[in-house]
Write a protein that binds this DNA or RNA. Sequence first.
DNA 1: TTAGGGTTAG
Length: 675
Amino acid sequence: MRLLPHELKPLLLTCKHNALISQIHALMVVSGLFSHGNSIAPLISSYAKVGDLKSAHKLFDKSPLRRVDSWNAVIIAYSKAEFPVEVVNIYNQMVLEGVKPDSSTFTVALKACTILQDLEKGEEIWEKVVECGYENDVFVGSSVLNLYAKCGKMDKAGVVFEKMQRRDVVCWTTMITGFVQSGKGREAVDLYRRMQREGMVGDGVVMLGLMQASANIADTKLGSSVHGYMIRRALPMDVNILTSLVDMYAKNGELEIATRVFQKMPFRNTVTWSALISGYAQNGFAVNALQLLIEMQLVGFTPDVASLVSALLACSDVGTLRLGRSIHGYAARNVIMDQVLSTGLIDMYAKCGLISCARSIYDRISSKDLICWNTIIACYGIHGQGREALTLFQQMKDEIEPDHATFAALLSALSHSGLVEEGRHWFDVMVNEYKIKPSEKHYACSVDLLARAGEVEEAKDLITSMETKPGLAVWVALLSGCHKHKKFSIGELAANRVLEFIPENTGTFVLVANFFAAAKIWDKAASVRKLMKMTGMTKVPGYSAVEVNGRLHAFLMDDTSHPQYEQIMGLLCNLENEMKAMGYVPKTDFVLQNLEEDVKVKMLGIHSERLAIAFGLLNTAPGTRLLITKNLRVCGDCHEVTKFISVIVKREIIVRDVKRFHHFKDGTCSCGDYW
DNA sequence: TTAGGGTTAG
């Protein structure tokens, strides 16, 4: 049998080995195919397809006649092999040799720029696109949209998008996903509605974008309607799509639905498990998250970095150092220590009280990314070491461009340490030098800093200067400052603003009620309490937990149910007598109810943090350091008491409350009594 | 023949 020349080309497409390709290549040469002007492009593609880029490129280099399709075959080969630098190089060479690129060339070249985040080169290519008359090509168009989107230039993407004469689903999707990924979920949804109005039908990729948008803007209804739409249209639901669904429900706090979708899945992978673990961890269900980590191993999955990081987050949340350490050990033995994992460990050690361990992990990271820096700065912040946070920030800004999160961490650190002057300065630098538009969070930190230092007038002026409508967090910060410094008139203004928001958080309501009580405006305090009852809210019970021999023990206020209750109260009573001899006077101001003095003193004595401390003292060896975690703020009297206890029992006691750390040692606290 | 996507740290 003899192959005819025209039969060689289709045969090439089926080749699975480069030896066979080179034989066909030789045959083509012998048959004189190329002397008749046939292109070498199919041969180049065939070599590339079997992974032999070297032969493909060599063939291209030796070819005397290089037409566009040959250039494209090579450039596409490098693109598929994920060599974006080579793609751009070949594109440059092509333009230099005066060959006119076509739709494929531009598309692939723009994609390479997107991967390289090279906006400048991308825009240069776009100029060439216009010059060559390809600006209305949907492939080229969606590629440039994606370039702008991935470089965070949604405004520029919008300009191109609006000018497009024809838009297909991919163009719409690129814009929608672009908005989602730059945190603009609202705009993404609006654009999808417009897409629907213009008669376009969304596919699975659009739905994925909308799922992320739903999690982004906490719109559970949107999430479930996307889910419904996918079922009605019978869009394919593979493991990855279902995993995204689990993730979406989990991020929206719908853990029951997330779990149901998870259980119904025919197949799961490590990512699916990680998504659910992180969902539980981020919604405060640390125990469930850690259980899932164990469960996944029981059914044969090996935890990867993502699942371990999520589990670490759960450990940080409840302050279980022993588990955190064991995950650290597991990770060190089984996975590669990357930036993500290291950052997770930094966070865990810092939140379990060991800032020095966090620091040594940080020091060992060879190339630190933005998030590493942001995390360590935030960690020093919650430990009340504002100066150290500032020092790190100074080092950071010489190496990497700080972002909005960096400044949020820095301002919060300065605020926790009461560094008012520095706070004013860096807020100013952020706005004027780094051109970062202050967000609600930045304002809240700065208002908090000023108000806590007693500068409530200035704090109020800062709020007035805001371009956007001040949110709840800002007013709450002002109110707590006024509460602390007994500035009742501005405080009352702030309290009324807070109430306008109908806060969902019980703690916020409690703050308002407590403020009115402190201002001795009992009728308003009572009416806020009544409002809380009417809206079905009750005060979140304060609890404290302490880790003893690797087990967490949690205590509510006046926890009489505990088997060691008698011993605990006995110890607290002895300690109180010693403290009184040392000059301790109960600060009954911190009991914010209208009660008799002796009842107030009694109420202070049974605060959950004291029970947890006493339990820890009773059940650990002398000298052992204690870590207490509290779900609310630690009260001023307990703070004073803990200082005394640290002297009497000669122990280090670390109390982590909802905001920050208090490290008690020899009668002093790391926060310098400023909190 | 080329374009859009899916877990994790702040």
